[in-house]
């Protein structure tokens, strides 16, 4: 039986701890909030298809002492496949890029992507990301993520998952609210001001 992304996210929760997530799209964000609760907003949603790993790269460079987990989708990454080379070129030691590959544009009506014929891990390796894995079971997913966390190098993990049978109920949080909640959470754990007080200059 094919694993699903929600089970993967349950595995991720204790591993992520006080680190940060960048997630492509609404569905995975809602799944994360279902599992993790809303008290600590350590998740930022990138609505721009293909940009989740790039947002993660910016965060990883800004906060080299924290692990940054990127949760991506196959349709989104196909839209910006070249970003794997940009990621590999900077190769931050604290970024773990997890690709949930269900070979489908789920929110676009479950039409197939062509990722059944695409070896994303091989592409990432060819781009010079050294730590790559492709996993198909929850046990292997947990092992791969735990190994990635112990590495001091960029990691890329492809998790082959089932097409979601139904969407989780849509939340009401938009990008602006998400930004402020994420920054305020980050300010609390980093113990520093992130949004500048411009009038005090």
């Amino acid at each position: 039986m094919i694993m699903n992304s929600l089970d993967c996210i349950k595995v991720l929760k204790p591993i992520v701890g006080d680190n940060l997530l960048v997630v492509w799209g609404t569905t995975k964000t809602i799944e994360w909030l279902q599992v993790n609760g809303k008290d600590k907003m350590n998740v930022f949603t990138s609505y721009a298809m293909g940009e989740a790993a790039m947002v993660g790269l910016g965060l990883a460079l800004a906060l080299p002492h924290r692990k940054i987990f990127v949760l991506d989708g196959d349709g989104a990454l196909l839209m910006n496949l070249g970003s794997l080379t940009t990621l590999a070129n900077k190769a931050p030691k604290n970024l773990i890029h997890i690709l949930f590959d269900n070979a489908s544009y789920v929110s676009g009506g479950r039409l197939p992507t062509f990722s059944k014929a695409t070896d994303f891990a091989a592409i990432a390796k060819a781009a010079s990301i050294k730590f790559t894995r492709t996993v198909k079971s929850i046990g292997d997913f947990k092992t791969a993520v735990e190994a990635a966390v112990k590495q001091a190098q960029t990691a890329f993990i492809v998790a082959k998952v089932a097409v979601d049978e139904k969407f989780p109920p849509l939340g009401t949080m938009d990008g602006l609210e998400n930004k402020y909640l994420f920054i305020r959470y980050l300010e609390s754990i980093e113990k520093k001001q992130i949004l500048p007080d411009i009038l005090k200059r």
Binding site: S46, L57, G58, L59
Partner: peptide, 11 residues
């Protein structure tokens, strides 16, 4: 624009 957004969120 993605990288800059992440960097801004991180301070």
């Amino acid at each position: 624009f993605g990288i800059s957004s992440g960097a801004y969120l991180g301070g």
